[in-house]
Every structure is written in structure tokens, then in C-alpha cells.
Design a protein around this nucleic acid. Structure first.
Lengths: 255, 255
DNA sequence: CGTTGACAATTGGTTGGACCAATGGGACAT
DNA sequence: ATGTCCCATTGGTCCAACCAATTGTCAACG
């Protein structure tokens, strides 16, 4: 099941907890952005912990925990006695991608393009497995989400994300499930999230294709269903790029 | 370029730095394994930091940094005032996969199967792009690696990993480059690494197919090259599963 | 009796300061 | 010019204390 409460799924992602207030997270965010802004280039060293602590006006412990986070993201390498060295982007973890692509108000369009280029065939393959292996219950869930998309759900984009997660569950493959959930997290920070949501095209326009796909699935025409899915994915990623382009250039919302 | 030193690429991955000796990493490893062993299930809480510090005979600081690592891997969620809660596997980061699949002497075969199921189409798509976009220099590098594979290289498996990285460079796509490097890190911890290497089939057996693929690439027959690549990938992942199965059951090496 | 609100125990977050330990470069002797 | 040793720099660990969020308890209140 996707929904936490079967009884009254009135809204999707109702509220978000107030932003966390841990010092080291704030410090980590600032250092991360400084790296992505090119203030510290690959191969260069960050200032010593003591110096950073002084500058951030926090204890050295908080700086150390922040650096630990950056290390986990693969952004820096720490060597005892030597300092903290910035690593090349290609060594970074996927968890660093959201902030690599969307940092501050700026969008790294090139990287977003590359991201979409990778994700599109991924989603297609995942969908193919989902179509092969789904259970009747999961298909019912999919119908429910389809109706939410057609209905007056507050945030249709989040419904779309839940569909991706549901598809991953259908594959019965833990790796796909992990991938889809990471993707969801990525999209929640993406060009259609938060203040930028106004640029998003209404995902309801996908409904005809989704219905066609569902029909094919139920009639056992897997090939056709996959083909339809391919069209859906193409439409989505064109929308993502379109929206990102608009958001970057400060254009007015589509509708 | 794949090689760090253009002059004398005598060996690939010559030595590894002696294992790190940071307390919090050791603590993090032990806690991670405890979670994967099912000692702490999803939804349950880890003991308080103070208690862990006492049990590990280290300072609370080290425990906190360890927990920070686990948090970065998506294995636990920390809430001020409440404790440290274990999260479901599906929420974990990809960086946690190596230790999820290979923990201790045990191999999580099911998960490895699923991993291969995801990686195979990924590699194929990446290879397709590489075949489309490569430069002559990169093709020359590929030939060099092919010769290393055929020669008396100490560790042919590592040559294979470098080939994957080179293919990702050929795609001119940062995301693929990141993915390939993460994959390399994964494989370095995998069933053919370290003590388990003896189970590995000799990658030299791939050479005929690689040569065929290279020939197709150079004669501009992309379709045929991709098809050949598909065969290579299939052969590799069958070998991975085979080796993992042998390693798990303590069978004797193949050759 | 049920609800509310204040309190207290638990547990993570932060601080300051001290000392240990690895690294790398510079001073010194050869 | 070269090799050795020392030491300043910088990350790693420890300690002890206090701040702050969460939760459960329990008394006061309606």
C-alpha cells in the first residue's frame, strides 16, 4: 500500500514538519553550496575545522559533524594531519544530486538534462517489470492514484511521484524500490516543488495516456502497455525540462 | 582519461591505502551490521547514545559521528528528544548497498540477484550512449584496457571495472560517470574482490566478444556493437551470480 | 470521568577546553 | 645537494557540563 491511512486519504503529503534546526546541517548546507558555487574547487582544501568553527560562530564539534555529512556525500575527503580536500564531482554520491542541480535559485540545466537522459530509460525498464509482475491489489492501488490525479487533489505532482513509487513496488525488486524512493526525494526538491510548483504543467494531462496504458495492462497486451508507458515518460521529462527552463528564466506560469 | 599517469600505466589500482582507523567508522560499521543482521528492526530504536558510548567503550562524540554516518546512509532517523529509529531498507541510500549485500562472510543472494537485474539494462543503455558519442582518444584507451585484459595484468577484474568507468566517460554524461564510479566502488567490495577473488572466472574469456564489439564500433555498425555488448553484459552478470553462489556455499574455485 | 496542563525523566544537540596523533614542510647536519 | 629530524598544523578523541525537544505521568480542573 502507498497510503498510510486507508480510511480517509483526503490529501497527499498534507504538511511538512517545520525545517530542522540542527546547527551542523545548516553548516553542511552552506559548505556544500560554497563547493557547488566554485568557491572551493576540486583538489583544493577547506579551511581548518577550528577556523570554520570560528567563522560560523559554532563549536568545532558542529563543524566536524557537518564535514562528516559532506564526506558521506562524497564531496570531500578528510585526511588526518592534512586537511579536508574537495573531491571531483564525478565521485559524489547520488544523494548530492539534488543540491548539485538545484542550488539556491539557480538550476543547473545541463546536469538536469543529463539526469533526465539517464532516468528516462531507467523508468521505462522499471515500468516494464512492473507491468510483468504486478498483483491485482497493486493494480487497484494504481487505479486509485489515477483517480486522485484526475480529481481535485491539492498536489497532483506528488500523486505522480507516488505512482513512480508504486510502480517500483510492483517490480518486487528492492533495488528498484530504493531507486524510486530516492527519485521521489529528488523530485520533491526539483523544479516543480515548493515555490517553483507554479511552473509545473498539470499532470492531469497525462490521464488519457495513463488510461490507455491501464487498459492495455488489463487486457494483457504488455507490449502495447510498455509502448504507451514510453510515451508517458517522454511527456513527463519534456515537461520537466520545459518547466526548469521557465523557472530558470523567470517566465510566467503556463496556465 | 582513466589513468592518472599517462607515462607508465604499468599496473591498475596498484595498492590500497591501509585501512582507516577512525573510531567512529568502526562503530558505524558495527551498528550497520547489527541493523542488517536484524538485531534492530525497522521502526525499533537504537540504544541511547550514552549507553552505546558506554558499551563501545568510546566517547559519546564518536558514537554521535557514527550515527551521523548511518543517518547519511538513510539507515536511521534521528529525532531530538526521541531516540534513533531504524528506517525501512527501501529508504536506504545506494551507498548502503554494498554492506547490505555483502555483510560479514555472508552474501545476500536475493538482493544481489535484484541488483544485477537492475544493473544489466543500465549498463546496456550506458554502453549504447558510449558507442554513439565516444572520441577516437577514448577508443584508443579502450583498446589499451582490452590489451591489459588479454595481457598478464595482476588483477583483470579491476581492468574490467575501469572499462565500465571509461564507458561512462564516453557518454559525456556526468550522471552516468557518477553511476559508473559508484558501481566500481560496489564491485570492489563485491564477490570477486579481496579474498573472494579466487572464485572469479577469468575476465579474459570476454576478450573475443570485446574484440567483436570493437570491430563493429570501428566499422560504424552500432546496432551490431550494441548487440554484442548485450552479450558481454549477460556473460558478466551470469558470472557474478555464479561466483556469488560458489562463494556463499564455499565451493572450490573454478580453475 | 475525561480533559487539560504542568512537571520530570529521557535523550539528542551544543559547548569549551584539553590532549592525542598523523602529515608535511622546513631547519639542520652531513 | 641530500637525507634526517623536529615541529607547526590539522584532524581525531575525550571529558564534563549544560541546553532543548519529546514523551509519559499525574495532579488539577471542568
Amino acid at each position: 500500500m502507498v497510503l498510510e491511512n486507508d480510511a480517509a486519504p483526503a490529501r497527499v503529503v498534507p504538511f511538512r514538519p517545520p525545517a530542522r534546526r540542527r546547527l551542523h546541517e545548516d553548516v553542511a548546507d552552506q559548505l556544500r553550496d560554497a563547493i557547488f558555487d566554485g568557491r572551493y574547487l576540486a583538489g583544493e582544501k577547506l579551511p581548518p575545522e577550528r577556523e570554520l568553527a570560528d567563522e560560523f560562530k559554532v563549536n568545532r564539534t558542529s563543524v566536524r559533524e557537518a564535514i562528516k555529512v559532506l564526506e558521506g556525500l562524497g564531496l570531500v575527503a578528510v585526511r588526518h594531519g592534512d586537511g579536508v580536500t574537495v573531491r571531483p564531482r564525478t565521485e559524489a554520491s547520488f544523494d548530492a544530486l539534488p543540491s548539485m542541480i538545484f542550488h539556491g535559485d539557480h538550476i543547473h540545466i545541463t546536469l538536469l538534462n543529463q539526469m533526465v537522459e539517464v532516468m528516462a530509460p531507467l523508468l521505462l525498464e522499471m515500468g516494464r517489470l512492473a507491468i510483468e509482475r504486478h498483483t491485482p491489489e497493486q493494480l487497484a492501488d494504481l487505479h486509485r492514484l489515477r483517480d486522485q490525479l484526475a480529481g481535485d487533489a491539492e498536489d497532483r505532482h506528488s500523486v505522480l511521484r507516488e505512482i513512480v513509487v508504486l510502480l517500483s513496488d510492483m517490480t518486487r525488486n528492492t533495488i528498484w524500490q530504493m531507486l524510486a524512493r530516492r527519485m521521489r526525494a529528488f523530485l520533491e526538491a526539483g523544479p516543480m516543488a515548493g515555490a517553483r510548483r507554479r511552473y509545473g504543467r498539470d499532470p492531469a494531462r497525462l490521464i488519457p495516456k495513463i488510461d490507455a496504458c491501464l487498459t492495455f495492462i488489463e487486457s494483457g497486451q504488455r507490449e502495447a502497455a510498455v509502448h504507451e508507458l514510453q510515451g508517458i515518460i517522454r511527456q513527463i521529462y519534456e515537461a520537466v525540462l520545459h518547466d526548469a527552463h521557465n523557472a530558470e528564466n523567470g517566465a510566467e506560469p503556463d496556465e
